[in-house]
Design a protein around this nucleic acid. Structure first.
Lengths: 176, 176
DNA sequence: AAATTACATGTAGAATTCTGCATGTCAAGG
DNA sequence: CCTTGACATGCAGAATTCTACATGTAATTT
């Protein structure tokens, strides 16, 4: 039951609407947990009924800004400190990376690995953008450590992908 | 629907029983995809009914060894090459790492980060064991690239965790 | 002024995953 | 011989997640 704690964690950093949470799941938290709005809104309602979050502001377009209550903050702390984390990861890219170098014909492996590399490069740019924006905003930068980790992991990922690509037997004909 | 392709991927490396697959999910694939036996056995049955896997041997204790059929192999290739990977990761540890440095009191953050570091250290040992065993077995080593990536990611993870721990305000009283 | 895009929230049903229970075999040690 | 632990497979019901549908508002562009 981690969706709940991911939501609490994001709200602990700053209050947000369901819509904003959805976007945060897509960017800052994209390497950690995926959730769509159709999960987030019901979860907010459930958290409210348990007294863990509350509406602190309403805005245009019927938006509601949610914040942690003391109960929610304590639940988050409890989960972080008392509950041993489940190590059950689920990452489709990782499976593919696992399979590509060994099981595919070199030509196919090249396609798959190159696509992952392209993605990693694009993702790095997004992370760097977030990083700069935070730096520009100055002060708190609640995501800084997470972005930092994302950049470091991205770095080794790119290196590994390039190594795997380099280790593939050379294509005989085209050289691009 | 990645469980299916993870199973196909493992069977592509070498035939295995459901039980063996379960263990492989726990070790080699633990950083990529988690699945328990109660998912794996039904999936094997389903894959069989679709002609993607077949029983190639039966052993003691009613065990059945499964292998890919050409259909299964082609499906795996198709998925790897034609289907763009979903980037939807789900990793509870990552959420916690995301939350710990920023939202917890230094004392609590220390507990959470230290636990993750302990886990990373233990996990590194497991990876190194696998690595050595493969090296000893010589020859094919189908997991070698995956273990290599696991070790690299583990490395940056440990560095990052140590950095975060070091960045925490020092505990006033005890110094260990 | 109209159309498009981004904002904003929600539900229903299908698919997937998890927890707990259940059963039985084989090998090794006491 | 009896017990324990690893091997081996399976099911049922609950919980979670996904896909698709649904609706409406505010700002921007044409």
């Amino acid at each position: 039951m981690s969706l709940r704690h991911a939501v609490l964690g994001l709200l602990a950093m700053e209050p947000a609407t369901g819509y904003e949470l959805t976007r945060k799941f897509d960017v800052s938290l994209s390497n950690a947990w995926h959730a769509s709005h159709s999960q987030i809104y019901p979860e907010l309602a459930k958290l409210e009924s348990e007294g863990m979050v509350e509406v602190v502001a309403t805005g245009a377009r019927n938006s509601r800004t949610w914040a942690l209550t003391p109960v929610g903050r304590e639940e988050l702390r409890r989960w972080m400190v008392d509950v041993a984390p489940s190590r059950a990861t689920r990452d489709e890219s990782a499976i593919r990376i696992f399979i590509a170098p060994r099981l595919l014909e070199p030509a196919d492996a090249r396609i798959a690995l190159q696509r992952d590399l392209d993605y990693a490069v694009a993702h790095r740019e997004i992370l760097e953008e977030i990083d700069e924006r935070q730096r520009a905003a100055g002060g708190t930068a609640p995501f800084a450590p997470a972005v930092d980790l994302g950049l470091r992991v991205n770095q080794v990922m790119q290196e590994w992908l390039r190594d795997q690509l380099a280790a593939l037997p050379a294509e005989p004909k085209s050289r691009r």
